[in-house]
Nucleic acid binder design. Structure first.
Lengths: 200, 200
DNA sequence: GTCTATAAATGGATAGAC
DNA sequence: GTCTATCCATTTATAGAC
């Protein structure tokens, strides 16, 4: 069961908990019950392993993007309950997705020293999700569900609320369901209040 | 000029750029033009140095808290321009303060493995500033400057906007004035729009 | 494709001279 | 309070057997 995929999964798990410099190749191999030379058969070096992980998350981002695109169909009107439900769903299914969440932890460390990691990080937690939010808010504006915002402020404030709830409660512990529930509760409250401010 | 304070400053600078595990005692001493044994005269070990840094930031948090308390005097009314100005000031003088900013970077890494660091981090970027925001919003509600929020949602959304602007633009590069200006511009737009929604 | 063994470098930490 | 010198553990990475 020790294929390349599994090695990457274990490496990601460890890297997300301490950052790549604090995790030795020995640590990874220990968790895999393998010797270092076995891992070096699959990956040129530690950086090569990191690069393979970056490619994995880039692929996942695109999968997620198209999933959002397909799910995207604004109804004839959006009630506050629907808005809250969709927002919590986004938090749970995207940011709190175990793999996404581990990448967020890992990349938030790596990006300080690795510009490639920084790019991936920005795409993962800003670029892609913000684009999706802006798309939805544009449509809601057009259909007069919400007030007209100067620029993209509503979409950005909306996403800031969700990302902040994630950072404050879940970051680094996506498997702690109590933490996830706290974040969901926070998003519920704040999105409900925010939506009632901008709703027409 | 190589007193304990200076050693801490240089260590903080390096730790904030890569995290403590990625910075060796040798690196720190190299930057100080000192031998390791000189540093070990002042600090028992690497962890002792880290602990001294945590104490420094805890002290700074309290200094900042009382500075906010003293500056705190809500006028007879708060115009949108005043609100924007205060918000940008908070971003620039607190989150973008070079020492605070370096601690944010460093602690965001350390907290994954060090629960003490996690506590300090939460106090620095959530507990203390949120308390201050909630205090101000409470007064503004009482004086009917803003609508009545269910719970503390307005204060929390307000702070989410500012923290998000910091994270998105400044994190890890507080000395990049272009990045700081971008964050300030973002806060200006979004706070202006948010305040106009809640203002009475 | 995984193992044993080992090389070469780096890291934390201390002893003892000045 | 800082320096030289050194110790020992850990780490990345490779060679060669199976």
């Amino acid at each position: 069961m020790n294929n390349k995929e599994n090695m990457l999964a274990v490496a990601l798990d460890l890297f997300s908990k301490k950052g790549s410099t604090a995790v030795s190749v020995r640590d990874i191999c220990g968790a895999l019950n393998l010797k270092e030379s076995a891992l070096y058969y699959h990956f040129k070096n530690k950086q090569d392993l990191l690069d393979a992980l970056y490619q994995q998350i880039l692929d996942l981002i695109e999968t997620m993007r198209s999933r959002f695109d397909n799910a995207f169909a604004v109804a004839t009107s959006v009630s506050t309950e629907e808005m809250v439900m969709v927002s919590c769903g986004f938090l749970k299914n995207y940011l709190c997705n175990p793999m996404v969440s581990k990448f967020i932890s890992m990349l938030s460390i790596e990006r300080l020293t690795d510009s490639k990691a920084n790019e991936v990080y920005n795409k993962l937690i800003y670029k892609m999700p913000l684009e999706q939010c802006e798309k939805v808010f544009n449509q809601m504006e057009d259909r007069k569900f919400v007030k007209k915002s100067a620029g993209k402020n509503y979409a950005q404030i909306y996403y800031a609320i969700i990302l902040n709830a994630y950072n404050q409660n879940v970051y680094g512990q996506c498997e702690n369901s109590e933490a996830v529930e706290k974040a969901v509760a926070q998003v519920s409250c704040q999105i409900e209040e925010f939506y009632s401010l901008i709703r027409i």
